[in-house]
Amino acid sequence: MTVTSERVVTTRSARLTAHIGSHAQTIAIGAVLVLLLIFFSFSADRFASVGNLLNLIRQISPTLIVAVAMTFVISTAGIDLSVGSTVALSGSLLAIVLQQGWDPTLALIAILALGAAIGFVNGWFSSYQGIPAFIVTLAMLSILRGTALRATEGYSTPIDGELWIVQLGQGRIAGVPVPAILAVVIALLGWLVLTRTPFGRYVVGLGSNGESLRRTGVNTRRVGLTVYVLAGLAAALAGVLIATRLSSGSSNAGTGFELEVITAVVLGGTSLFGGRASMLGTIFGALTLGVIANGLVLLHVSPFYVQIVQGSILLLAIFANNKMWARFGAVRK
């Protein structure tokens, strides 16, 4: 290292480069989202109406809520594959206990506690026992899906539309769907926690250089466990929203949900290797998936194309982003 290299970061343009470099993918996915919004506004008649956009946010809200939590998990260089099965189990059990006459408030608390407990088990195995999160949560994916199937025997369980809890999925406050409100509030909270609190700082630090963080005296295992509890909690809430939306709890809900959530997070620029996190990117990523699904349906394109397009966008975004990183190579290693 020579003295001149020391000046690399001294200028304003260098600072700008550093900031663009670390936010390149967020900017990219934001641009993709804007382009898609413009495209569908012109090509699909009813796309750009307030009603449809609210509907779009409602549709994507379970994905967005879990993606916010998943951003924390992936920032620590972890992964949670069990969120889709958690959605199925929590929705199924919610319908079953309501059918058995449980008080809806009690049922909601119990289901959320179950989600947190599932996350605790995931976190205990991966963070405290050092078993790769991929394996732990893959096993949990299987266990929870099986449990949901066993509990429901494969049938859907109806939820009584008179119960207040149905409002969680179907209600509106001042015309705005409740799931959309919940998703926006949770996304804002997630952003605040990730960027403005010590916990968020430690989540990024854990994924960036966990040993360094441990040496500063932070209880890194507890941080590692907490992110899975958040993911389990978010997945249980998503399960409740989906079940109450449909007035039915199904053990087949949330199939492939974990992949959609991970797609949203990775689209947003959060690194699967940890350390680099963007909550804004996650929100953009989830909205992009929602816009594609909603817009294509309005264009009367076969829904089977939705996944093809979503997957292609993911591949393109990652590809373009790698090229951009190469350009800002002095900043990102």
């Binding site: 670390s22 403005r196 609190t197 010590p198 700082r201 990024v204 630090g205 994924g207 960036s208 250089n209 040993e211 360094s212 963080l213 040496r215 500063t216 005296g217 932070v218 350390g275 680099r276 290693k333």
Partner: peptide, 27 residues
């Protein structure tokens, strides 16, 4: 070099003992 590459200079200087406000909730 026990530094976190993805965290900024000030964040690394204070890692594990960040100055806080709002009753310790926020950095």
């Amino acid at each position: 070099l026990a530094l976190c590459d993805d965290i900024d200079v000030a964040g690394n200087l204070f890692l594990g003992r960040e100055p806080r406000r709002a009753g310790g909730l926020l950095l």
